[in-house]
Simulated scan of single mutants.
Amino acid sequence: MASIDHYENFPVASWLCPAHLRPAVAALYHFARTADDIADEGDAPAHHRLNDLAEYRADLNLCLAGSTTPSQRWPALFAALAHAVQQHQLPAQPLHDLLDAFEQDVVYTSVGQGYRNRAELLDYCRRSANPVGRLMLHLYGVSDNTSLHQSDAICTALQLINFWQDRPLDLARGRNYLPQAHALEEELQFARALMNQGAPLAKRVQGRAGWELRAVVQGGLRILDKLEAEQNRPRLNRTDLLCIAWRCLRM
């Protein structure tokens, strides 16, 4: 699933996405992207970021409640999100979970806190990544427990891959996602196991969405191949894209 700009976890409306879902996917992307920018971009102190995220959450609550009062700071964003919520009956919890994760990033960065173990990191991924997959499955009308758990595995794997490929950048910003007493090689293997665990979902989701999900899975696995070989931020070239396409066909 192709992404726009720099919110890596959110699959955005590509040509594989049915046209009637593209506005909702774009609205969700911009909701997540803007919150991520509040948490990450610029040089505002932590308490300003948290205040802004609190105001953002208040506007989300109004949006979810069906309020006709426009957001003062983000009117276009919440107008589009309100339309998506109404049209597709989007669940509230995944949207709040995303904001919880962004707030945690602000707090952890401000005090230099890392993750003591993998369980803590996975709890963060449960809120920072897994909501994306669950929202997408909701749009596609998929709600069985097996699909939800496989989606969670894929989304957590993607989040972990993002962490490990961006590790030098994160460390420079005061963020360390590598659990204490864990080696990077071990975490790369764990991310691969999670991706393989979730991969069957790509064959169970029908139509173009299934093919897009195959590309997500195989793209993540290919990045892991390169990370294991190079252990620096990989760049996918034409050969890699052909490899991904071939693996998608063979799934």
Rank of each mutant, 00 (worst) to 15 (best):
R167A: 09
L178C: 11
Q189T: 04
D166M: 08
A153R: 00
F190C: 00
P179Q: 10
R192G: 05
A183L: 05
A183E: 03
W164E: 05
Y177A: 12
A183S: 04
A157E: 05
P168W: 00
A191H: 03
L169I: 14
A183M: 06
D152Y: 11
I154F: 02
R175A: 03
S151Y: 12
D166P: 06
A153P: 01
L171N: 10
A193T: 13
W164P: 09
A172E: 13
A183Q: 06
I154E: 03
L169V: 12
R175P: 01
A172L: 12
E187D: 15
T156K: 06
A183H: 05
Q150S: 12
T156R: 07
A153I: 01
I154Y: 02
Q189P: 02
N162A: 09
L160W: 03
N176T: 14
E187A: 14
D166V: 06
R192V: 07
C155G: 02
A153N: 01
L178Q: 14
R173G: 15
F190Q: 00
I154Q: 04
L171H: 10
P179Y: 12
H182G: 06
D166Q: 15
A191V: 05
D152Q: 07
E186T: 08
Q189Y: 02
P179I: 14
D166N: 07
E186A: 07
N162G: 06
A193I: 03
D170G: 07
C155L: 01
A191N: 04
Q159G: 07
R173H: 15
Q180F: 04
R167I: 07
Q180C: 05
F163R: 06
E186V: 04
F190D: 00
A193V: 02
A193D: 05
F190M: 00
Q150D: 11
L169D: 14
P168A: 00
R167L: 15
S151P: 03
I161R: 00
Q159I: 05
F163W: 06
P179C: 15
Q180P: 01
Q159N: 09
S151D: 10
P179V: 09
Y177F: 12
N176E: 15
L169G: 12
F163Q: 03
E187H: 12
N162H: 04
R167Q: 09
Q189C: 03
L171A: 08
A181C: 13
Q159T: 07
Q150I: 09
Q165F: 14
Q150T: 08
E185D: 11
N176L: 15
D170T: 07
R192L: 12
H182P: 03
R167V: 10
A193Q: 11
N176A: 15
Q165W: 13
L160I: 10
D152F: 11
Q159H: 04
A183W: 02
Q189A: 05
R167P: 04
L171V: 10
R175M: 05
A181H: 15
D170Y: 09
A153T: 01
P179G: 14
R192N: 13
G174A: 10
D166I: 13
L188M: 13
A193Y: 06
P168L: 01
I161Y: 01
L171D: 09
Y177Q: 11
W164Y: 13
I161H: 02
D152H: 13
A193C: 05
R173W: 14
R175N: 00
L178T: 09
P179E: 14
R167Y: 12
F163M: 04
Q180W: 03
R173K: 13
L171I: 13
W164K: 07
L178Y: 11
Q189G: 09
D152A: 10
R173I: 08
E186G: 05
